[in-house]
Amino acid sequence: MIKITNLEKFYRTEEVETIALNKLSMHVDTGEFVAIMGPSGCGKSTLLNILGMLDDPDEGSYVFNGIEVAQFNERKRADLRKHNIGFVFQSFNLIDELTVFENVELPLIYTGVSAAERVKRVEEVLDKMQIMHRRNHYPQQLSGGQQQRVAIARAVVNKPKLILADEPTGNLDSSNGNDVMELLTDLNEQGTTIIMVTHSEHDARYSHRIIRLLDGQTVMENIMV
């Protein structure tokens, strides 16, 4: 599903140039559950942003579902992204002014789904995440675990083929963290490809394969059994 070759990304500030990704190559197959690990600052989030087409690489090739997207402009990327990819963040990134229901509904609005269909699909996914009873609450009124479940609900409501999760359990205690990992595993078993950045070896064990990064380069890949 994903194949990147010699991917490079630099950050230039006034004084220094940081190489966030250095001739990185890797691939992820459809249906895989991949964990990305590595020390802080090694380029994990950068990689995830590029995979999610939020950012573009400076060099190299990125083939998504057989399409070369490295040179895509903003609009084309946004189009491809909103139909294919869901995001889960460490800090949930829910919109404070919107209720649980409205937060989850957002991606459907942007892909132009009809109102009736939206209600049906949001209710369905809230049910699955077991937060239906909180549909009219605002994010601040929920616990961290509940918020992350809303965020996952929002990520999957559009039935994306790929879910990108950046330290999804980073702000959660272990029991809530395990719940989230169970959810991701379930989604993966239903066919969704998942790429997850994590610092936790425990969480990484839920995946099929771990990619370890060091200074923007792959060091090694462990295949889990």
């Binding site: 999610g52 939020l54 609009r75 946004a78 992204r81 909103k82 995001f87 990134n93 829910l94 919109i95 404070d96 002014e97 957002l106 991606p107 942007y110 892909t111 929002r154």
Partner: peptide, 12 residues
Amino acid sequence: KEIGIRKVLGAN
């Protein structure tokens, strides 16, 4: 931040 989130979710 809200704008960022909305854009990630597909808002043009």
